[in-house]
């Protein structure tokens, strides 16, 4: 047997976020009624209007074993408004804000891997063209806590700063672009074998553009997983892509290239 086993009885894949029609009426109050979230709202949304609806499809496992790398996808295929900005939160993490994403043109989905320190609501907040934030949330049960503070089983593998791109032609005619960046994404909370804290060092800025123009720029915090894979669903197929990333030490990584097909 491998390690890190703990008891649980829930069945695998029993409950993922289910898609509700985009027109489903929203509500003005937090369905989880979370005081932590109330504080985050105050800090991050500056009094803007917030509505809780099902206007995006948030895909994340509802029960997680490997909390150091949890895949999340935000799908806007049926979102009835312009996605002006995206913010992702894991509210019980030491750093609740995970990312802010500024789309520069339309894409149908964005995803990447995050860390979860303990069980938490994961929330995606989407600002529409009128400045209203639409919030979708899902409770994620973390079976083995410590995704931000325990030594990281995913940190090895890729060389620091190595960027790889891949392109997948999707059945709907568009493409999915995946960008993987080799980076340990140190949270600053992990203690090494000698008992010393490993200083925080993570990618805090990422931008992607292609021959059609800018795609998105992102601001990231320490809750993004090591060697993250970022994915975007796009209406076109890219011939050339530029990825620019910069970490908290000021080290910049740039890749120009044509994504390889699978």
């Amino acid at each position: 047997m491998f390690f890190r086993l703990i008891a649980c009885s829930a069945l695998m894949a029993a409950g993922f976020a289910t898609f509700a029609p985009a027109g489903a009426a929203g509500q003005a109050t937090d369905p989880f009624d979370s005081p932590v979230w109330r504080d985050i709202l105050e800090m991050e949304f500056d009094g803007a209007e917030v509505v809780y609806d099902q206007s995006i499809y948030l895909v994340v496992p509802d029960q997680v074993e490997e909390a150091f790398s949890v895949p999340v996808v935000m799908n806007f295929a049926h979102t009835p408004y312009t996605v002006a900005e995206i913010a992702l939160f894991a509210e019980n993490n030491p750093f609740p804000i995970v990312a802010r994403i500024y789309p520069q043109r339309g894409f149908k989905a964005v995803g990447f891997d995050i860390r979860l320190e303990r069980s938490t609501p994961v929330r995606a907040a989407i600002m529409d063209g009128d400045g209203v934030w639409h919030v979708v949330q899902k409770q994620v049960l973390v079976m083995t806590p410590g995704g931000c503070s325990a030594p990281d089983g995913a940190a090895g593998g890729a060389a620091m700063g190595k960027i790889a791109m891949r392109q997948f032609v999707r059945t709907n005619g568009g493409s999915r672009l995946k960008v993987r960046i080799g980076h340990p994404m140190h949270t600053g909370l992990v203690v090494d074998d000698a008992g010393d804290a490993i200083p925080a060092q993570y990618i805090e800025r990422l931008s992607v553009r292609d021959e059609f123009g800018g795609l998105a720029s992102m601001v990231l915090w320490a809750s993004v997983a090591a060697n993250p894979v970022f994915m975007f669903d796009l209406p076109e197929t890219q011939q050339s892509v530029r990825v620019t990333a910069e970490d908290t030490d000021g080290t910049a990584f740039i890749l120009d290239g044509k994504p390889s097909a699978m």
């Binding site: 895909v59 496992p61 996808v73 997948f168």
Partner: peptide, 16 residues
């Protein structure tokens, strides 16, 4: 699933 470009989050939606 990988060859179709799925995210593992999407792969995990399918039942065992």
């Amino acid at each position: 699933s990988y060859r179709m470009g799925d995210s593992p989050a999407e792969t995990l939606m399918a039942e065992v």
